[in-house]
């Protein structure tokens, strides 16, 4: 029973991460920009959040700590996502290449920054890439000793907002038009560049929060040399499985969340222990599942038609 509770908790934690980041990817791709760089954005968001959690006084009210950390994650994520915006929108660069570079850059930059801070703080003796935040993390939990945290509430709010924004507002209509048929959008006076920047920046904000949630999932310190272990890419798989639709993304995220959670808590289930699978199999499971899911869903996927294609005004 206790194990099932634990499984549910971890499932919700990882599903929150995946939902947030996949929604970020969804907004970027709906505007027409493929965001392979989510992994790097997550790392930078995590860095922003970790710096706040590591420095802020644990005596402050939990909600203040929470808001400060989230805000930092958003700012870091958005600033970093500008790299993609500039490359893809202004310079019409290969979006896959730019995204890949961002993933490497995010990891290297975060490592360098954290190490430099640790070196400076310790006078050269500590050159680890870790930030610890045991006390502050506890303040974010809704119930001590569990994984239920304020982030889950935030995720639910963001999910609802993302749905409404996309389908019920002028902004959403215009954003989707830019990802489907930028020439059409431009011909009715919509600035494709602005909408795409909006999409990329939203993905930066959501990816940043996702990174923060990831590094607080069951641990109270982040090692930036490791990054976020491919979660940015799992989120892309979630997004594809969710067919670029917020309400389906959350279901896909829950499915993936279960498999990721199993890697943490598999030893408590009798029937799983009976299978006697080695731990690496559980570690691989989310990636294997996503490969299988992609194999079955990619053939008829309804990706935004114009994603990945730089928009050139003169090609109307």
């Amino acid at each position: 029973m206790q194990q099932i509770m634990l499984l549910i908790q971890y499932t919700l934690v990882y599903a929150s991460v995946l939902t947030l980041v996949a929604l970020g990817g969804c907004y970027s791709e709906r505007s027409g920009v493929i965001n392979i760089g989510l992994e790097g954005i997550m790392v930078m968001g995590a860095l922003g959040g970790a710096l706040v959690l590591g420095c802020i006084s644990p005596d402050l009210p939990g909600i203040v700590i929470f808001l400060a950390a989230v805000l930092a994650a958003i700012v870091f994520g958005m600033l970093f996502s500008l790299l993609l915006g500039v490359a893809a929108i202004n310079f019409k660069a290969d979006q896959t290449l730019a995204g890949t570079a961002m993933n490497m850059l995010g990891l290297a930059l975060a490592t360098v920054i954290v190490k430099a801070l640790n070196i400076a703080a310790s006078g050269g003796s500590n050159n680890s890439a870790e930030i610890a935040y045991t006390a502050t993390r506890e303040k974010l939990l809704l119930a001590q000793g569990t994984e239920f945290s304020m982030f889950m509430i935030l995720t639910a709010i963001i999910l609802a907002a993302a749905y409404v924004l996309l389908y019920k507002t002028r902004f959403g209509l215009r954003l989707m038009a830019c990802g489907e048929h930028p020439q059409a959008a431009n011909s009715v006076g919509i600035s494709v560049a602005k909408m795409r920047y909006a999409g990329v920046l939203i993905s930066g904000a959501l990816g940043g929060i996702g990174g923060l949630v990831y590094i607080t999932a069951g641990v109270s310190k982040a090692n930036f040399e490791v990054g976020v272990a491919g979660f940015g890419f799992l989120a892309l798989a979630v997004m594809i499985f969710g067919q670029w639709k917020p309400h389906r993304i959350v279901l896909a995220a829950l499915l993936f969340g279960v498999f990721r959670a199993l890697a943490n808590v598999n030893n408590g289930f009798d029937f799983l222990t009976a299978l006697n699978l080695p731990q690496p199999v559980y570690n691989m499971l989310p990636y294997i599942i996503s490969l299988i899911v992609l194999a079955f869903t990619s053939k008829n996927s309804h990706a935004p038609k114009a994603e990945g294609i730089p928009y050139d005004k003169s090609t109307r």
């Binding site: 490359a87 310079f91 570079a101 961002m102 490497m104 850059l105 290297a108 930059l109 360098v112 190490k115």
Partner: peptide, 16 residues
């Protein structure tokens, strides 16, 4: 990791 950072920046710039 500063060398990794430089490599990553170079890749990014290759997009241009």
């Amino acid at each position: 990791q500063i060398a990794d950072l430089i490599s990553a920046i170079i890749i990014y710039l290759c997009g241009f």
